[in-house]
């Protein structure tokens, strides 16, 4: 009976630890753009300048994760007329902000800028991964149990050789 209780507690403990894998999932809403973890999100458009500047321009892309302001990606491209196209995957199911800036390559001044809030849909890990993790962690506990039982048996055998256990005999 005691063994079953301990086994039940072990399984419960494993279930709780496996849930740490979900830690990055969140369902924050309200973004301008929707993306899914595991898939590329495409950004395409054209930035217009208000002045008389003419191309080619430099287009800068900057993506940050809003929950901790972590810089996820930053890169630049060149464009003859202000049009842009790039794709990236958001690997964390949290809200991100992508800033696209049109920059004068000579003066490095920002001619136009667009900010896009991206709502990223997170997913739970695949069932196979959860099962594998559970099996691995249970195997580790089972290994410890085998060692514990072996130590007890070894001690018992030793004591028998030394003539202890008068009540058992």
């Amino acid at each position: 009976m005691r063994f079953r209780v301990v086994l039940l507690v072990s399984v419960l403990l494993m279930s709780m630890t496996s849930s740490t894998v979900f830690a990055h999932g969140s369902d924050q809403g309200g973004g301008d753009h929707h993306a899914r973890v595991g898939e590329l999100a495409y950004f395409e458009g054209k930035l217009e300048t208000s002045g008389q500047e003419r191309g080619p321009y430099e287009v800068q892309f900057h993506a940050i994760r809003l929950e901790d302001k972590a810089e996820i990606m930053s890169m630049k491209s060149s464009s003859p007329d202000g049009s842009y196209k790039f794709a990236m995957q958001f690997f964390d199911g949290a809200e991100h902000e992508v800033t696209i800036s049109l920059v004068d390559p000579a003066t490095k001044s920002i001619l136009a800028e667009k900010k896009v809030t991206v709502e990223v849909e997170g997913f739970h890990p695949p069932f196979a991964v959860k099962v594998k993790t559970m099996v691995f962690l249970l195997s580790v506990i089972a290994f410890g149990m085998v060692v514990g039982v072996s130590v007890t048996r070894w001690g018992k055998t030793n004591r028998k050789w030394k003539g202890e256990y008068p009540d058992v005999a």
Binding site: S10, G144, V147, V149
Partner: peptide, 13 residues
């Protein structure tokens, strides 16, 4: 986890 398993196995046996 190994230590937990060890204690459980030792106590039960």
């Amino acid at each position: 986890l190994v230590a937990f398993g060890f204690v459980v196995g030792y106590v039960l046996s």
